[in-house]
Design a protein around this nucleic acid. Structure first.
Lengths: 143, 143
DNA sequence: TTAAAAGTCTACTAACTTGATAGAATTTAT
DNA sequence: ATAAATTCTATCAAGTTAGTAGACTTTTAA
């Protein structure tokens, strides 16, 4: 949920890139996300330096990074952690296996690295920009 | 954990394919898996018709399907459910999105289907047989 | 025929995660 | 000053996960 909501909110912010502020309440309403919950999510994104915000009247959130520089993989890692299925094959959240005798020759590891790369590649290639493009072309199709 | 343990146990059973029974206690000891926990896991695999068992002295578990016919995707689905990151893009565990206005034109869906396909392909191509081959070639390398 | 060795089944628990809510505090424009 | 906005911390209920416990059944070998 969190990750999905984050991506939806970020796509909105990407559509508004360098065009001012978007308010939490607005995004929440449009995407049907519980407002208070979205607050937390946006806050986490702020701490991760993906978005920034301005308080007070007329304030709100805005995207700091260029939409092409924010991938689904980035967002996934913030909210759901490792992309890898096993901690021992994770690049960003590595943890040693307790039950494994020799990590270097573990066949599971070798195969799970392939799986991780499969997922990681697609998730890294999918950015806010590519999501935005799909959104726009879908909107056009609908007309 | 469950999924990892299951795969480890299945690789052992695959190595013993059509060569008789392997006991829970044995596999548990070799793979450092809590025995009682492994019992549950093997039972689930039996209910999923991946393995079968024989009770009594000299009994144990054995693989029913050919190692090339059991993929990591199959096992993952038994223990962890959907491969897709969102239920609304899952093939085997589909559920409708509550917050989505129009599934047909949802840009998230379109992109997440690509991600699912990336993961699904690699996980479907990785079978007990391919894991076994890696195990064997690793054992050889070690000599 | 009986005891031991094996799997079967059901229930339970502690710790953690998730999705969400609540409310007080802070900042800013007018 | 005040209203509109974000910020921050705490809390909660429900669900999941990893693992444990124990009673039961089936099989076989002595």
């Amino acid at each position: 949920m969190k990750c999905k909501y984050a991506i939806k909110a970020l796509v909105r912010l990407a559509a508004n890139y360098e065009k001012g502020y978007l308010q939490t309440a607005d995004i929440a309403a449009k995407e049907h996300i519980p407002k208070k919950f979205l607050e937390q999510i946006l806050l986490e994104l702020k701490h991760s330096r993906i978005v920034n915000s301005k308080q007070g009247i007329g304030g709100g959130y805005y995207l700091i990074k260029h939409p092409s520089k924010v991938s689904v993989a980035d967002i996934y890692r913030i909210f759901d952690g490792a992309i890898a299925l096993l901690p021992c094959v994770s690049l960003n959240f590595y943890e040693k296996c307790e039950d494994c005798d020799d990590e270097k020759t573990c066949s599971l590891r070798i195969e799970f690295i392939k799986i991780r790369e499969g997922a990681r590649q697609v998730m890294s290639l999918t950015t806010l920009q590519s999501l935005l493009k799909t959104t726009e072309s879908q909107a056009k199709r609908k007309k």
